[in-house]
Amino acid sequence: MRSAKQFVTDFGWPRIIIFIFLVLLFVAAPFFRVRIDASISDVLNRFGQNGLFVLAMVPMIQAGCGLNFGLSLGIIAGLIGSTLSVQFGLLGVFGFFGAVGLSVPFAVFFGWLYGLLLNKVKGEEMTIAMYVGFASVMFMCIMWLILPFNGPTMIWGYAGKGLRTTITIEGFYRHFLNDFLAVRIGDSFVFPTGMLLFVGFCAFLMWLFLRTKTGTAMTAVGSNPDYARASGISADKMRTISVIISTVLGAAGIIVYQQSYGFIQLYTAPLAMPFAAVAAILIGGASVNKASMVNVLVGAFLFQGLLTMTPSVINSALQTDISEVVRIIVSNGIIIYALTRKTKVTK
């Protein structure tokens, strides 16, 4: 009884409600002629697409930098890598890993700068991260127009220059991971084995990393910076490392997303992406200063489940397109909830 109560307070009512809501959606789905198998396939697919973004939240939360509202920086690095990969005409396995490989140096560099910046503004990380993210997205918007890309599938046909808003990667590395060992059952169920394996592998690496000496030090910095300092740890260095890792994951994340989605989305597309990842990890039970692998998996699944199921079930039940509004309320509500919760660092 007591532990049940404890569980509820730890997990938080909003999350439990969301969980129950999602279960109800699945139960109700058949009554509104929504195919369960298609839905599950869809949820898995989206889970894979977004898993890395959610995972990218972990290191910064653990190191005490808060929620990474500036994930767009990593996404931008990934976009640079993927556009370069397409520009160089890398195909299939080379295309995918080429994109990742090309984006990592950018991600490390951006992350390093971003980390330096966040170290200067301790306490205000989240607001500043958000605006740094916005500003860099806008800066890249200009760059996409100016940079001398010339792949015929990439640039605007009529102007002869400037990248398109969406670039197809059909024939480059579309579904490279999705189709790897994919299992097809019936018409509408596909298990994207490759993508889930990749996400799982990254999560495993993160799990390992958090257990290394550096990972342990990083967690300690987030848990109690003074303790870490007294033990000879440089908080700034750990924070910078966490930001770099988060940024690299963001870069890899967008490439995984693209290969499943089939397009590279440029310009203002990265603006809103961090918010979804933030909402997902919070729904998974993380707080502003503690996150675990379980939070990532549960959160990504719950949030993407919600995104998939609300449109199909609610819309067919109520005959309206209300799901978008439900999504806005739920995802932002959970962020507000997390931000207004008393930080549970006992001091």
Binding site: A230, K290, K347
Partner: peptide, 15 residues
């Protein structure tokens, strides 16, 4: 060093 500020500097309370 064993700090006088046990809860602030001395311990990782949440670990």
């Amino acid at each position: 060093f064993v700090s006088e500020d046990r809860r602030g500097v001395g311990l990782l309370l949440d670990e």
